[in-house]
Structure formats: C-alpha cells, structure tokens
Write a protein that binds this DNA or RNA. Structure first.
Lengths: 322, 322
DNA sequence: GACCGAAACGAAAATATCTTTCATGAGTGA
DNA sequence: TCACTCATGAAAGATATTTTCGTTTCGGTC
C-alpha cells in the first residue's frame, strides 16, 4: 500500500514539509533518474560521515550496490540499516527500495551505453560472448546497409514479374544455393511454381524450358559464378524475365538480367568470411521479394499459406514424444 | 537465504548482475539483462494462462511493473502472488525481487535508448519501400534478441564438443534444413567432417553410426519435429554429444540434447511467417558455432579456409564471360 | 575540566514484502 | 464416469525494509 502510494506521486499529506516545495533534506524533490552521481556530489557536503560512506559506495558501483539488500549495503559500508535508509531519503527517494531500483536502472544504462565498443574485428582469442555480440552487430549492420541500398524500383519490377509468372527458376550455388532454395520454399508455400535446381546441368536444362512470362532469378555474390550465369543466360535468351541478386552490380551476371538487385558487401575478415554477410543480405532481398509477391497475390497466397501451415502441423508432435 | 547468499558474495565486485550460472527452471540460464521481451516470447508457449497474463503485463509495461510489489502485480493481472513469483522463476530469476530489478533496468534502457520503433505489422497495401524497411527492422530486432538471449555457456560447451568431434551430423527439415546445410558447408570449409542428411531415414541411418566424441546437432524451431528428433535421439543414445537449436527450450527435442541453444521467436503475422525470423535467429546461432569452432581450431582452420577459398576462385569467371 | 544540548548512529522492534506450502478445483485421458 | 495431473490462490512462513528509541559523539560554554 505504502509503496504504491509513494511511487505514484509525492506524498501530499506529509506533515513534515511545510508550504514550500523544497522537500526533505537539502536537495531535489523528484527521484533522480540517472543523475545520481551528480546528486551525490552535490549533497555530499551536507551528509554525515556514515552517510557519505554509503553515498560513495552507491555512486562508485551502482550495479554492485543494486545487488545488495539494506543489510548488505550497511555491512559493506560498515554502517547500519538505518543509515542506509536515511541516505536513500536524502538522495530523494522514498526509501531504500526505490534507490535500489534506480540503481539497477542506472547500471543498465551504463552497460548499454558501453555497447558501441564492438567495432573491432573478431579475433582468435575473443571470448565467446564477444563473438556473439560482434556477429549480431555485423549482421544487423549488413541488414541496414542492404535495406538502404536496395533499389525499390527494381525490386518492385521483379515482384511484379514474379507475381505474374507462369513458373519461376532460382539459380544459386554453394551458400547462395541455400538462399535460392529458401526463396523457392517460400514461393511454393504461396502456391507459385518455383524450382531451385541444385545441379548446374539441371539448371540449364530447366532454363531452356522457360519462355516469355516466366521468371529466372540468379543469386550470386560475386556475380561471376559461371554455373549460375549460364542458366540465367539461357533463360534470358528465351525471353524470360531475368533477375540478378548480386553484390557486384557491374559483374558479368548483370548482362543477362532485366532487373538487378544489389546486395551489400560488408567488410570481411579471416574469421568472418564474406559468405556470411552476403548470405544475410541475400536473404533480406529474397524475403522482400517474397513478401512483395505475397502482397500482390494476397487473394490466393493467404489460403495457400494457411494450407501449408496446416499440413505441416501434423508433422509436429506426432512422433518423438515419450 | 538466497538473497543473503547473493549479497554476501557480491560484495564490491561487479559480478552481481551477470553472475548466476545455475540452469534454473526450464532452460534459461543467466538472468536476462535486457533480453526480457525476447525471453517472454520464447517462453510464453510453455506458460500457463495465468503466467502468460503476468508475462504479458511485464513485457508490455516494464516501467510500470517495476513500480509494483508482488501483491500489486498480482492484483493488476488478476492472479496471485504465487503465480507472479512462479513467472519470475520461469523467466530465469531467483525470485520476484530480481525480476523487478531487471525490469527497472530495462525501463531505464528503453527510456534512454532510441525513441521510436516501427511497431506496425506489414500490411497488404504497404508500399514496397515500407516492406523493405519493416523486414530489415524486424530481422535486426530478431538478431538483437537472439544475441541477448543466447546462453554463452551452452554455446561454449557446444563449440568445444564440435571442435573435438571426430565427425558431426546436423539434422534439419524444411527451412531449418537449409540452416543445417549452411552450418555443414561452413564446417567442411574449415576441415571438419560434417553431414546434413536431408532425408529423415538417411539421417537416422547416419545417426546410429555416431559414438562418444561425435556430435549431433538438431535444428528445429518448434522442437517437436519428429523427423529431426529421431536421429538426435539415436545419436544421444549412442553416446554422441548432442546439441539442440530450437525456439522452444521446453520442447521434446531437448530431452535428448546435452546442450540447448535457444533461438528467439519474434512476433509473426500473416505476411511474415514465423519461419522467417526463426531462420534469421538460427543462422546467427549457427554462425556463432562456426566462428567459435574456427577460433578453437585456428591452426588447422585458417589454412583450410584459405584452401577452399582458393579452390572456388577458379569457378568464378572461368565460364560465362562473353 | 566538567556540563549541556544537539545531532549522529545503530540495535532492535514493527511493518511491509517476498517466498513457500498446501488444499482445492479444473481439465484430461482412460 | 473416475482417477489423475496440473494450475492456482490462500495463507503460513521467511526476509527485507522502515521506524523507534536509547546510546554515543561532538562542539561549545561556564
């Protein structure tokens, strides 16, 4: 009851304070948000020795103190619980509990503010936690770059072609092959006809069957992968609409592409091969294609999606449970 | 007792917040610093109705909840104190007190952090530029959540096992199958022996060949895909070290997993199937595994990487140029 | 140097808050 | 339908925080 009251608003019925707004102690009325260290310095002169010790501990290690109970902090500073509570009051909080809460907030802020220190490359001796942080950061960066650089006009044209296509082929090899398959899986789910031949020969065989109105998509980071260029060329020459998803807009593959979607190339290192960020970038492009097509064909895509979802539900939990 | 213990050990060292290493409850190992929203989403499916209400309130208004006592939050959500405490435990905290502290931290971070967020879902009539922006933002969010929620201890253990493995199998079906292949491709590039059987029967056939010292990794978002659980189980029973990469840390697949790596589950919508964000999350985890292993086996990994890079260079530009 | 008053301080009581236990009822599968 | 499991909240039990109150310390005065 009291807690709720205290945190909700200032105690209006407090008998102690008279008319003026300058509440208890010598300092601020509102609970300090993050300016705690400053407040401590300001108020330090008006504190007694014991309280100074407490305030010092609090300002010196917010995170550590936030983990302590009143008793703990009292012991740490060699004082008593009462003194700790008095200090909390002086700093503007209703009690120690609220000071502790503010302390936790401060600690969190400090920690998050320290985040941008991860610009460095991944090193061989980085602890695993750093690896996670750096990889996540890099991939986020890649996504932002890709989104910023993506040509929405080209994307829109590619989407329009896909939505109207009789059938679609997606070519990719190696890591890009997985992206190609990913796109294919998605397109199939909304009722389109799509293939992602894994074998280069098969790809060409497929490609020569395409004709005007069909779509062929080539996914290659370097833009120079012969095994991917060949089928795209075949499709191009037969009048199909061709799309290239590549990190090199000046590469050979674009010769045979009606629409070029550029993926971003972020810096790579020995421990972080280019394949990693190009994959992230390619997947974003492919997702955009998918969602765009799903929008355009919503009438038929929605039920198709629902149906495939439904069908797969039976595969879950039907086996493997004890 | 618990608190006293914590405070006694905490002392002046700043280890307080990130210290806990005990795998409490159902999977969450360390007390989450800022990954709370992600954790809530991840664990929500395994919660009871009442607990979901509590979790929802907590995720929806961290600042507000931080100002409430157990009783207050219980009343707000129409449940009991016991339920609130249970929820706090499930989220990985020793008790409500610590959840409250974390909540305060989260609130502080949110306030200081970036102001706006693209909260809207992708709509059928969104212009293509919006689709790109929203998708990129969502995937970035997924990455951040995943990184924050990833248990580095489990990850480290998995990396150690992989680096020492005689051979490695990676199981996955559908979209997760592509992730499995991605990991396999990478591991092969640094000279490890890895397979990602696509056929469920083949997978089991492979699995029974594993023995102690080998590693089996299952990738499944739902954690209930029988076709993936079966081979992992076979490997588990033969003494291989097993790893599960799943979005549901309480799902059947974890029964047979020595190490569980949790992927994050972000909100999905009709136009943005769960598969999309789970794939992003899975790929980050897999990348972390790869880099971790590459670090550990740097002596042999570096030349192997260089060699495979070299070998592929011949495939670029050798064909397809006019 | 002794005395007085005021303030600082901490021990312990009093209160609030958090945690655990346990009985009950809803839902589920046989 | 019945037995069974599990979610749930009420209340008891344990901790933490706040208040009370007496003791100690300090500074000044006679």
């Amino acid at each position: 009851m009291k807690e709720t009251f205290g945190s909700a608003g200032g105690g209006s019925s407090a008998t102690g304070t008279t008319g003026g707004r300058r509440g208890a102690g010598s300092g601020g009325a509102p609970p300090a948000p993050a300016a705690l260290a400053a407040k401590v310095r300001t108020l330090a002169p008006s504190m007694t020795r014991s309280m100074q010790r407490v305030a010092e501990a609090v300002a010196g290690d917010p995170a550590g103190c936030a983990a302590l109970t009143v008793t703990g902090l009292a012991e740490l500073t060699g004082t008593s619980e009462a003194t700790v509570v008095r200090t909390a009051r002086l700093l503007g909080y209703p009690g120690y509990r609220d000071l502790r809460l503010a302390l936790a907030g401060l600690a969190a802020q400090q920690q998050s503010g320290r985040a941008p220190a991860i610009t460095t490359d991944i090193a061989v001796d980085d602890p695993i936690a750093d690896v996670v942080a750096k990889l996540a950061y890099d991939e986020q960066q890649t996504l932002a770059d890709t989104a910023a650089a993506l040509d929405t006009v080209q994307l829109g044209a590619a989407v329009a072609a896909l939505a109207a296509a009789r059938r679609t082929d997606v070519y990719g090899i190696g890591a890009s092959g997985l992206v190609a398959q990913d796109l294919t899986q998605k397109l199939l789910r909304i009722g389109l006809i799509a293939h992602a031949p894994g074998d280069p020969h098969l790809a060409v065989t497929n490609a020569v069957q395409l004709r005007a109105g069909d779509v062929a998509i080539a996914i290659t980071h370097s833009g120079s992968t012969g095994d991917v260029i060949e089928p795209l060329r075949a499709a191009f020459e037969r009048g199909a609409t061709t799309v290239a998803v590549t990190g090199r807009p000046d590469s050979p593959v674009t010769q045979y592409a009606d629409h070029v979607l550029t993926t971003s190339t972020s810096r790579e290192s020995e421990l972080r091969p280019a394949a990693m960020s190009s994959r992230t970038s390619q997947l974003l492009v492919v997702d955009c294609l998918f969602v765009g097509v799903a929008q355009r064909t919503y009438e038929s895509a929605a039920p198709a999606l629902a149906a495939s979802y439904e069908a797969l539900a039976h595969r879950h939990g039907s086996r493997g449970r004890p």
